[in-house]
Design a protein around this nucleic acid. Sequence first.
RNA 1: GGAGAGAUGGGUGAGUGGCUUAAACCACAGGUUUGCUAAACCUGCGAAGGAAGUAAUUCCUUCCGAGGGUUCGAAUCCCUCUCUCUCCGCCA
Length: 419
Amino acid sequence: MHSINYIRENPIEFDNAMKVRGEKPLSSKIIEIDKIKRETQTVLQNLLAERNTLSKEIGILKSKNQNANDQINKVEDLKTKINSLKELENIKNNELNSILMNLPNIAHKSVPNGKDESENTLYRKWGTKPKFNFQPKVHYEIGEKLGLINFEIASKLSGSRFVLLKKQISKLERSIANFMLDKHTEDNGYTEYSVPFLVKDDSLYGTGQLPKFEEDLFPAGDHHWLIPTAEVPLTNLVRNEILNINQLPIRSTSYTPCFRSEAGAAGKDTRGMLRQHQFTKVELVSIVEPQFSEDELERMLVCAESILKDLNIHYRVMTLCTGDMGFSANKTYDIEVWLPGENTYREISSCSNCGDFQARRMNSRYKSNDKNIFTHTLNGSGLAVGRTLIAILENYQMEDGNVEIPKVLIKYFNNKTLF
RNA sequence: GGAGAGAUGGGUGAGUGGCUUAAACCACAGGUUUGCUAAACCUGCGAAGGAAGUAAUUCCUUCCGAGGGUUCGAAUCCCUCUCUCUCCGCCA
């Protein structure tokens, strides 16, 4: 959500910022509604003040047993005016909110301008593509050949975009999650949480999934939604809170399943377990003071990268361009892991600085020198577990169809290969 | 699911229709004094918004879980909902 003050004072900059994110110029409409709202408010408040004074007089007169009919009649008159102004104020408020709640965050000045993912820019790379003296397979061939990944049974249970993992591969998933959580809590300074997987509307409005992206979510009953990412519960921990400055920064992590309807991705990545309705992920969330959020994004990126470095898997980091960024972000880095079977890089983590965009929606503030200041929020995958599993299968595959286990996972896995 | 109790500022907590303009304490911030891993005292201190002013600031409105209602006037009375706690039942 945007500050109305900012829009009022910088209408042209605001419209330009929205334009690069694919929105129409709305500042003049916003300012007009806001103006009517404030004028209404001013008149209304004067009438309310008048009513309050009269009511007080009535109280005094009555306590002295004197007649107060004049005052009572006057207040009766005021009442109808007050009610219609209240209604108008409400309407304008709702108009304003429904516009503001649907506008994406403003991109940071360091974000490259661009239309779609083809215009993302390379930020850095780590490692090199591994060489195989055989034709590397894709993850689902490896897994199906081993009899440990099964899509048909999963689809019998739940339909398309689900997967069933078995024995060593399901254990591998668990090992990966444990490794990531241990790394982030022991080395990277994050606090582990076990969070609810169902959340209510307010939480999803806070982080920006609602109202605009309802179709991407799975509803659960009348009042709940399945979380699309642990970002939602972890970030909303500070919703409606005024934090003490010495509580910051807050760095939290959680391992959860994530549920996504993938409504806009029909026909995309249908083969394999790359794009599922349900997958697991270790999420990182930071709540920081505004002046530290840019550094925090770099720090978070390094934390996410540390997982792939420990696993010794080649990756590159892309800076997303304005056209490819998510709704709530002001800047996003994607970590793209190398998948030799697919012969391509695929997103395995997305680290975003949301600035005060989510904090305004959530009303999350901290107290500094007696002032209440909106926090800045950041979130990133650290990492997507399912996709890490894919990356391990493809990067650690051997010619005989077996898969070696990365060194750092052996202690969680107690085995050197899948078989 | 049944019965009961409750929800007040960052926290604890008083307040049953107009002397509440939300007390008091804690925490926090500033200061004074003593002097050293600190204490005592003083002062300030809920939130959101509007109007006036170059500004410091001043005035006003709203908010006591949420939404409605009664009333000239509601933290206080009524209705609906949400959540928390206690007991009972069921249950991983």
